[in-house]
Design a protein around this nucleic acid. Structure first.
Lengths: 190, 190
DNA sequence: GTCTATAAGATGATAGAC
DNA sequence: GTCTATCATCTTATAGAC
């Protein structure tokens, strides 16, 4: 493995991981580079060797979500039935209920915050959401549904909304119960 | 009318209105008191005569949302049928589709941001969300539904989620189409 | 490549004149 | 009651030593 980016000890990776956690917990604006550096056990001023700006670091965090989401969808493709794939995705989100109740959906709350910002980061975050919706749309289409796009958005809306309410009320049960409803709903379509 | 709070010219009200708009558009953290003051045509340092801290100003904004929401629910009570009341509420949210697509749901995005903050403001915001969910639950109960709480959360989740997606994709149509689906869904329950 | 020290700018909050 | 001037702090970003 070459030493691109001079990542002796994987500092770059540690910084991204640290930023990912802190941004989820505190949001982009409230997370300072000092916190990210401390959490990654890297000197503050050194951050700028790996990322020219804070936005660039956040972009790297978003890129990580992108990778993770794509990998997840590839995994789901293994299932032969589109309805099963959709239910598995729903269950995956339900499994994150505890953490969503604490800090919100990592991508959802990030999109919410970035859409109020000036930069171009919101476009990066939007792309990930689009990947999920497009994928769900394709599954509903394969199920022979008439309006697969609306169904995909209905599913994803419910997931995002229940994560928001779970976070607001600090009640992980909200995600779990709504996920169960959604699985039943998917079954009812077949 | 007495001059409580010394609101010559309604400066206090102007400040709250100004803060409400800016917080919706930019979020709490990104909104500076200088912006709020300028937008309200009040000198910067004067803000502290009306609000001891920035948090106190935000609390006043949330209290305004509280008033508005309660007034809205009282209006809806006029309709004799609970299903009509729920559909009217859904339609009201749909009417805010354009603005939600631009800046997100005012309360939803505020809750999302405040839950990542330290203060106690998130409790104030949570209370408003609870009022809505409790009210919707009561309507579903009056409709004779088995699990009114789950239905109320399902409805509100979909609304909040579609506002988030509409904001993320900058597409007001998402709110409109999902609202139509929700109205049909409510009809199907009767 | 790594790190310290610090510049540069913004922001919440205060003191005190009027 | 109203407003100006300013403080103190925090945060991003840079310069430059090692």
């Amino acid at each position: 493995m070459s030493d691109l980016h001079g990542n002796r000890g994987g500092k770059r990776e540690r910084l991204i991981q640290s930023a990912q956690l802190l941004v989820h917990q505190q949001g982009v604006q409230r997370t300072t580079l000092a916190q990210v550096a401390a959490n990654a056990q890297v000197p503050v001023g050194n951050v700028y060797y790996y990322f020219k700006t804070k936005d660039e670091l956040v972009a790297a965090v978003i890129a990580t979500y992108d990778d993770e989401m794509r990998a997840m969808l590839v995994m789901l493709e293994r299932r032969p039935e589109p309805a099963d794939r959709l239910k598995a995705l729903t269950r995956h989100w339900a499994d994150m209920g505890e953490i969503s109740a604490r800090y919100g959906c990592p991508m959802g709350s990030l999109c919410s915050e970035l859409d109020k910002a000036d930069g171009a980061l919101d476009r990066d975050a939007e792309r990930i959401m689009a990947i999920v919706v497009d994928w769900a749309e394709e599954q509903f289409r394969q199920m022979g549904q008439r309006e697969p796009r609306d169904l995909a958005i209905a599913l994803f809306s419910s997931v995002q909304g229940s994560a928001l309410l779970a976070n607001t009320f600090r009640d992980p049960d909200i995600v779990a119960r709504q996920a169960r409803r959604l699985e039943d709903w998917i079954d009812s379509l077949t």
